[in-house]
Simulated assay, not measured.
Amino acid sequence: MENFALIFSAIFIGYLIAKADAFPKNTPLILNQFILYISAPAMVLLQIPKLTFSFEVIIPVFIAWVVMSISALAVFYLSKLFKFTKEVTGALMLVAVLGNTSYLGIPIIQAYFGEGALGYVLMYDQLGSFIALSTYGTFISVYYSSAKEVDIKALSLKIVKFPPFLALILALFFIGTSFNPVVESVLSSLAGTIIPLALVAVGLQLKFRLPSEDLKPFALALGIKLILAPLIAIVLCYIFSWNSKAAQISVMEASMAPMITAAAVASMAGLAPRLSSAIVGYGILLSFFTTWVVYNFII
């Protein structure tokens, strides 16, 4: 209960701050930069070494990519079926496929499964969602917004220079080992900042405006992200008879709301920015209910 109180309170605080215009407009950017460069790498270094080398570590990565791939195909096909514009299709290819597996995934899964689950969350997020955002997300934003070619070299550099990803590569060498208590204490303190800062940043960026002409793509996006995606993960676990904690956490990660950064990428590329923001805003609120339903189904 305390974790959920923190989630709702921090998001609401961020939303009120945005409404009151009390902080600078670039506050979400600053908070996200602090998280990306300090909080997230600290959490990766703290949690990943607690895992053990086994097939369980691969399950979240496998499920993440299968879920995103099938979701992208569903968006592509249904967008053609409903004759959505190129801009709307591009927006849906981002916000209906990429999930908020870190900023919301970490506090929500910690609330349900405890801190011991965070290693699997980070595997799903860093080797799944983040790489997909950096590669697939960049390609989609360029392809649907212009005729420019994707710069593969720049894309690769962006991935390998991303602080949490670098921390993940380093942390993989320390799986099964323990840090000095002083080092662990420092990492724990820094990692502890990720949840309140991330949730306040979420609240600062929430937008709910939605004109009537956007209702069909809006419903399609949330249907795919909040219903189809976890169903795909559940079916995968059933097919392979996976019922471990890693599998359960992967299903929960698949059920997370649309990624805020994906909406930001869509907006910067001119891909239906108002629709993208509304999908993320309403998706975050609805996801608290849908993740609860998914959790009670898989446990």
Rank of each mutant, 00 (worst) to 15 (best):
S9Y: 02
G14V: 15
F23K: 05
F23T: 11
N26K: 10
T27S: 13
Q33W: 02
P41I: 08
P41Q: 08
M43Y: 05
L51H: 11
S54Q: 06
F55V: 03
I58L: 13
F62H: 03
F62N: 00
V66Q: 03
M68W: 13
I70E: 00
Y77E: 02
S79A: 04
F82D: 08
T89N: 02
T89D: 02
A91M: 11
M93P: 00
L98I: 07
T101I: 01
T101K: 12
S102W: 01
Y103C: 08
L104D: 03
P107W: 00
P107I: 03
I109H: 13
G114Y: 07
E115K: 14
E115G: 15
E115Y: 05
G116H: 09
A117F: 04
Q126N: 10
L127G: 06
G128R: 04
S129C: 14
L133V: 09
L133I: 11
Y136V: 00
S141N: 08
S141K: 06
Y143A: 13
E149L: 11
I152E: 00
I152S: 05
K153M: 02
K158V: 01
K158I: 02
V160Y: 09
I169R: 05
F174Q: 15
S178N: 13
V182K: 12
V183Y: 08
S185I: 11
A191R: 02
A191K: 00
A191M: 03
I195Q: 14
V202G: 02
G203L: 01
L204H: 10
L206V: 13
L206F: 01
K207C: 04
F208P: 10
L210R: 05
S212E: 12
D214H: 15
K216V: 12
K216G: 04
A221R: 05
I234K: 06
Y238A: 14
A246N: 12
Q248R: 08
S255D: 08
M259E: 10
A264Q: 13
R274S: 08
L275Q: 06
L275R: 07
S277I: 00
I279E: 05
I279P: 09
I279M: 11
G281E: 12
I284H: 01
F288D: 09
F289G: 11
T290Q: 04
W292N: 09
Y295C: 05
F297N: 07
